[in-house]
Design a protein around this nucleic acid. Structure first.
Length: 573
DNA sequence: TCGGTCACGTA
DNA sequence: CGTACGTGACCGAG
C-alpha cells in the first residue's frame, strides 16, 4: 500500500483504543484501521511520514501517549482555541462554534443517559453537525463514535476546524508569531499528556519521613487520627488555659478572637502579619507552627500520598494553559509543593534530574516584547538589574523592585520612587506596560505577543455602570494591573513552552523525559550516563527558543538559564 | 450541595 | 492597592 499522505502534511486523527483509528489528510488522503492494527499503523505513519497530527483535544493526546505513541508534531484544536479565544472554556463544541462563527454560549448540552434519551437514540445515523450548525453533543461525548466511519467523520470535522483556526491566526496581522505559538502550544499539550502519564519520581519513604516530622507517624485508624489532631490543637490552645476550649483553629474568626484574648488585635490572621507578633505572646509561635503542620497534614499528608502516588510516581492532571495569561497548570499539588517536601522528589536509581530555570525571565521578556533598546542592552548582563541600577543611580535591589513593580502594577513601596527613573530611562518598555494597562482599564481585550487573547470583558467585571465611583475606579485599576501583568506573564509562558517543547523534541530519541514544568523551571529525568548530553540540550534549547521566538527586526535580547545535575529537587540552588 | 471567603503554598 | 494557579476548610444560602 502506498501512503496517501506526504511528509509533514496535516493529518487529522480520531483514535479510540477499542474501536480503532481514522486519519484524514489535508490533501484528501484517508485511511482507517480497526483497533488491533491501529497503533502499529499510527507508529508507521509517524515514522515514515511524520505528519502534523490534528486532533480535537486532550483525550486523543492521552490515548496516543497511553499507547506509547509519542507524536513529534501536532495541532491541538483545544489548545489553539484557548489561544485564539482566550479564557478557560474550550472543548469541541466551542472550538467548532468559533470555527463556524456561531455563538459559543449557545452550544447544545448533552442529554442525560436515561431510558427516555435511549429511546430517542433511534436516529443514531444523524450527522455530527446539527441543522442549526452546532455539533451534536452525542458525537462530542463519544457515544456515537463507535466505528471507523464515524471516526473518519470526526477527523474530517477536526480538519475543518483547523483550517478556520489557521485562517484566524493568519488574520492577526500584528501578531506574526501567532501560528508558531499555536504549534508550540499544541506540542505543550502533548507534553502535558506525557507529564500525566509519566509522573514525577518521588521517594515515598522519604516523603513519609518528612510528613511524620510535621504531623507524627501515619495514624492506624480514625480514632488515632482524631487523637493526633486534638493533641496538635491542644499545643496551641493550652496557652490560653480554659479560655481556649471553644476555639476552632481552622476558623479565622475564632483565631482572631483567640488572639484578642491574648491581647493582640489584628485585621486578619495571615502568617506574614503574625510573624511580626511572635514575641507578643507564646500562642503566636504555637499557632504558626500549628499552621504549617496543619497544612502538611491536610494538603500534603498521608492522604495526598495515597491519592496521587502510584509506583513511585506523583501524578496530577496537566493543562497547557490557564484561562488568564496562558501558563501551564497542574493539580495534585505539583505546582505548589512546599520546599519542605522537595527532598522527597528524587531521581530513580541510575538516574538523575537535569534541573534548569530561566533567569530573570519576565524583565527579559519585557525587553523583547516592548523592543526597548536600552532594556534590551541590559539583558546582555547575567544580572540585568545591575546595569539598570547603574543607569538609574540606585541600589541593585531597588532597581529590581522597581522593574518588578512596573510589570505588576505596584504603586506603593520602595519601587514607586524609582519608577520615575524607569520612565525616563526606559520609555519604550514603560510605555508598552502603560499602554496595556490603559487599554485593560477601559475593558478592552489584549493579545500577547504570541496572539493569546486576554479577555478583559470578564475580568474585574465592569458590571453596573454607576459612574466613576470608588468601587468602579478600583475595579478599573485591578483590570489595569491584570492586563499589564498578563502581557508579560503571558509572553513568558509562551517562551517557556517553546523552550520546553524544544527540549522534549531534542530528547525524543533517548529515555530522558521532562517530568516537571514550573512556569520557568524544568526537571528532566534521565540516565546518569546521559546527564551531560541532556544538560547541553536544555541549555542549548534556551538559545534555540530565543532564536525562534525573537522578532528578527527587534533589538537583541539575551536569555539565560541556570542548569545543574541533581539527585533530589532540594539539591537545587 | 453550592459559591464565597480565608489561608497558604508555588512561580 | 502586584499577578496567576490549586487545595482545603469554614460559612451561609438554598
Amino acid at each position: 500500500m502506498t501512503d496517501p499522505f506526504s511528509a509533514g502534511e496535516c493529518v487529522a486523527i480520531a483514535f479510540d483504543a477499542d474501536v480503532g483509528a481514522a486519519v484524514v489528510g489535508e490533501h484528501g488522503g484517508v485511511a482507517a484501521w480497526p483497533a488491533p492494527m491501529a497503533i502499529e499503523a499510527l507508529e508507521r505513519l509517524e515514522r515514515q511520514v511524520g505528519p502534523r497530527w490534528v486532533w480535537w483535544g486532550p483525550d486523543t493526546a492521552r490515548r496516543l501517549v497511553a499507547a506509547q505513541v509519542r507524536p513529534a508534531r501536532c495541532w491541538d484544536l483545544d489548545a489553539v482555541h484557548r489561544l485564539l479565544q482566550g479564557g478557560w472554556p474550550s472543548g469541541p463544541a466551542r472550538a467548532w462554534a468559533a470555527a463556524r462563527g456561531l455563538d459559543a454560549d449557545a452550544t447544545p448540552t448533552v442529554a442525560p443517559v436515561d431510558l427516555f434519551s435511549a429511546a430517542t437514540d433511534d436516529d443514531a445515523d444523524a450527522d455530527a453537525v446539527r441543522p442549526d450548525g452546532h455539533l451534536d453533543p452525542r458525537w462530542i461525548d463519544g457515544r456515537w463514535r463507535d466505528d471507523l466511519d464515524t471516526l473518519t467523520r470526526w477527523a474530517t470535522l477536526a480538519l475543518e476546524v483547523q483550517r478556520a483556526q489557521r485562517a484566524g491566526l493568519d488574520d492577526l496581522d500584528d501578531r506574526p508569531a501567532a501560528p508558531a505559538t499555536a504549534r508550540s502550544e499544541s506540542a505543550a499539550a502533548v507534553l502535558c499528556a506525557e507529564l500525566e502519564h509519566d509522573g514525577l519520581p518521588i521517594d515515598v519513604a522519604e516523603a513519609e519521613r518528612i510528613i511524620a516530622s510535621f504531623v507524627g507517624p501515619r495514624p492506624r485508624d480514625a480514632a488515632e487520627e482524631q487523637r493526633l489532631t486534638d493533641e496538635r490543637d491542644h499545643r496551641v490552645l493550652r496557652h490560653l488555659g480554659r479560655a481556649g476550649t471553644d476555639v476552632d483553629l481552622r476558623n479565622p474568626a475564632n483565631v482572631k478572637s483567640l488572639l484578642r484574648r491574648a491581647g493582640i488585635e489584628v485585621p486578619d490572621t495571615r502568617a506574614w502579619r503574625l510573624e511580626q507578633l511572635r514575641d507578643r505572646h507564646p500562642v503566636v509561635d504555637a499557632l504558626l507552627e500549628w499552621r504549617t503542620a496543619e497544612r502538611i497534614g491536610t494538603a500534603f499528608g498521608y492522604r495526598w500520598l495515597d491519592e496521587h502516588v502510584r509506583n513511585g510516581r506523583l501524578r496530577g492532571s496537566w493543562s497547557p494553559s490557564d484561562g488568564a495569561a496562558g501558563r501551564m497548570t497542574a493539580t495534585a499539588g505539583l505546582h505548589n509543593l512546599t520546599a519542605d517536601l522537595r527532598p522527597a522528589i528524587a531521581a530513580e536509581p541510575g538516574h538523575v534530574f537535569v534541573r534548569a530555570d530561566l533567569g530573570q525571565i519576565e524583565p527579559r521578556i519585557l525587553a523583547a516584547v516592548s523592543g526597548d533598546p536600552a532594556l534590551a542592552a541590559a539583558t546582555e548582563d547575567d544580572d540585568m538589574y545591575s546595569p539598570v541600577a547603574a543607569r538609574l543611580g540606585v541600589a541593585r535591589d531597588v532597581a529590581k523592585v522597581a522593574v518588578l513593580g512596573a510589570m505588576y502594577g505596584q504603586t506603593t513601596g520602595h519601587g514607586a520612587a524609582a519608577l520615575a527613573g524607569l520612565r525616563t530611562n526606559y520609555p519604550i518598555a514603560m510605555g508598552y506596560l502603560d499602554g496595556a494597562a490603559r487599554r485593560a482599564e477601559g475593558g478592552n481585550d489584549l493579545r500577547t505577543r504570541g496572539g493569546r487573547l486576554v479577555r478583559m470583558s470578564s475580568a474585574g467585571d465592569p458590571g453596573d455602570d454607576d459612574g466613576p465611583s470608588g468601587v468602579e475606579r478600583s475595579r478599573a485599576a485591578a483590570r489595569g494591573r491584570y492586563g499589564r501583568n498578563a502581557m508579560v506573564q503571558g509572553a513568558a509562558a509562551e517562551f517557556f513552552k517553546t523552550w520546553a517543547v524544544i527540549v522534549r523534541a531534542r530528547c525524543a530519541g533517548s529515555a530522558a523525559r521532562i517530568v516537571m514544568c514550573l512556569h520557568d523551571e524544568l526537571l528532566v529525568h534521565c540516565h546518569v550516563a546521559d546527564a551531560d548530553e541532556v544538560l547541553r540540550r536544555v541549555t542549548d534549547g534556551v538559545q534555540e527558543a530565543a532564536h525562534r521566538w525573537l522578532e528578527p527586526t527587534a533589538p537583541h535580547v539575551r536569555f539565560v538559564a541556570d542548569a545543574s545535575v541533581i539527585h533530589r529537587w532540594s539539591d537545587a540552588k
